[in-house]
């Protein structure tokens, strides 16, 4: 009898403790921000121009088309990337099947060898094409990877403090995200290596509403330690264009669809 009472007490404590750890308001903000920035419409397309500037001021360009299709809002997604510049990666295509509960599947097609290469992809915090954007910045960090906490609320922003569930798997100790209260677009993120020591910043430089969806049209990642940075400009943005799921297969990896080549 005594044991049952203790068990009930533990259970009650646990049940009461859960809402205290994850306040519904934070979960709601995070979910909405995630859907706004990575799941607008059922599908989408954009032409992305990246300018990578190293710490000595030398620049490199990347130009690619990106096609996206959501399998499920907030869940699995399909990405197709077609590179146009620079010339050494021209016409290379890249296919990602993004999953929430397991590692993504990634393939790359090298046209000069007609080779479909499967890419081992356990590390999502690797640079995307030599830029300061990481794979995770491009396709989104799984929200269950962090503990979220509303650290401040200003007139315009919810400021969320995020700490990793598995600190050993990442290079930061925490990061702050400024979520726009109106649009729910995350407008800035600062990654810290220690409290008060940001070393990396991702920020939105320009955004606008396209076809009813708040959309980032220019963003920047800065390495705050050495000043190196990458600016991404998004153009030819379209939503709900009816991209077929078959586009995200080996067939189109080998012969990129017209939407991507144009």
């Amino acid at each position: 009898m005594k044991h049952i009472r203790i068990a009930l007490l533990i259970l009650a404590t646990f049940l009461l403790a859960v809402p205290a750890v994850a306040a519904p308001i934070v979960e709601e903000i995070i979910n909405k921000a995630n859907l706004t920035s990575y799941y607008a419409g059922d599908d989408g397309q954009a032409l992305v121009e990246m300018t990578i500037t190293d710490s000595q001021g030398r620049t490199r360009q990347r130009l690619f088309t990106i096609l996206r299709k959501d399998v499920e809002d907030g869940g699995s997604q399909l990405y197709f990337v077609y590179f146009k510049k620079p010339s050494d990666v021209r016409k290379t295509t890249f296919l990602v099947h993004k999953f929430i509960d397991k590692d993504d599947d990634r393939w790359m097609y090298l046209p000069s060898l007609d080779l479909v290469k499967r890419i081992a992809s356990s590390d999502k915090r690797t640079s995307f094409m030599g830029s300061h954007f990481l794979y995770e910045d491009v396709s989104g960090r799984n929200i269950s990877e962090d503990h979220h906490e509303l650290s401040e609320e200003t007139a315009d922003f919810y400021i969320i403090n995020n700490t990793p569930v598995h600190p050993e798997s990442v290079e930061f100790t925490s990061y702050l995200v400024w979520v726009d209260k109106q649009t729910f677009l995350p407008m800035k993120a600062e990654y810290l290596t220690a409290p008060g020591k940001p070393y990396r910043r991702v920020e939105v430089l320009e955004s606008k509403v396209i076809e009813g969806f708040p959309t980032v049209t220019k963003s920047k990642v800065t390495n705050l330690v050495n000043g190196a940075h990458t600016v991404s400009e998004f153009s030819k943005i379209k939503y709900n264009i009816g991209v077929k799921e078959s586009i995200f297969t080996e067939r189109y990896l080998r012969r990129p669809p017209r939407e991507a080549r144009k």
């Binding site: 081992a120 356990s122 915090r125």
Partner: peptide, 8 residues
């Protein structure tokens, strides 16, 4: 078998 052993 191929895998990422460390960063890059």
């Amino acid at each position: 078998y191929e895998q990422e052993l460390a960063h890059n």
